[in-house]
């Protein structure tokens, strides 16, 4: 590498090459979409079954499963962080979008709990389904991944559907939202990630 012989044309080539190499560094492997997608799907359908078929009053207890998923996620993220060698602007934006989503989600649940009226709880499902669409939409835009954008728009449409549907049937709406917004895109992202990993491994060996 001789600085004197390094022409402006070559420097332009270096810039282009490096920017190209740094592109698509967002290492989304789809794992958390699948994890939370299936958790919420299972809890929604589970609550519907407990309510509709077994008439069990404390059917909402099934949502405590989310705590187990949350604990698993905590350790998973801690483990994954150790592997990270690059942090992009997109990674940083997305992590804060998802943190905001979790804060607002918990806040909504708290506000509904404080309100105390049974009739208000009928609105929580449509509100949460609409909320699922927000980080999904932003992620879809940032990752330039259409299945997430489509999933987010579906969430918003389903939230309207849930609002005009009686309980317990409206519990099937978050399950449908999860399938379209997180499970299907998560599966596609996972496949892409595994394919890319295999390609890298083949390239190295």
């Amino acid at each position: 590498m001789n600085p004197e012989r390094f022409s402006p044309q070559e420097s332009l080539k270096v810039i282009q090459e490096m920017i190209e190499k740094a592109k698509n560094q967002v290492s989304e492997n789809g794992h958390l979409y699948l994890l939370w997608g299936w958790t919420v799907f299972f809890c929604s359908v589970g609550q519907f079954i407990l309510w509709h078929f077994f008439n069990w009053e404390k059917n909402a207890l099934i949502w405590y499963l989310c705590f187990i998923t949350g604990i698993y996620q905590f350790f998973y993220i801690r483990k994954e962080r150790r592997k990270v060698v690059v942090l992009t602007y997109a990674d940083r934006i997305l992590s804060f979008v998802w943190i905001s989503f979790v804060i607002v989600l918990l806040l909504i649940i708290l506000l509904f709990s404080l309100h105390g009226e049974t009739s208000a709880w009928k609105l929580i499902t449509p509100v949460l389904v609409a909320l699922y669409g927000v980080p999904t939409f932003v992620s879809g835009i940032v990752l330039q991944f259409r299945p997430l954008i489509f999933g987010a728009i579906t969430c918003w449409a389903l939230s309207v559907g849930a609002a005009i549907t009686k309980v317990p049937y409206q519990l099937l709406f978050p399950a449908a939202a999860m399938l379209v917004a997180w499970i299907i895109p998560g599966t596609i992202l996972r496949k892409k990630y595994l394919k890319a990993q295999k390609h890298t491994a083949d390239h190295v060996s």
Binding site: F6, E10, V14, A22, R92
Partner: peptide
């Protein structure tokens, strides 16, 4: 300089 420019080009692309 080739390597310094390469480093800067990478760092301008990622955080």
């Amino acid at each position: 300089q080739q390597l310094r420019l390469a480093i800067m080009s990478l760092l301008i692309s990622v955080r």
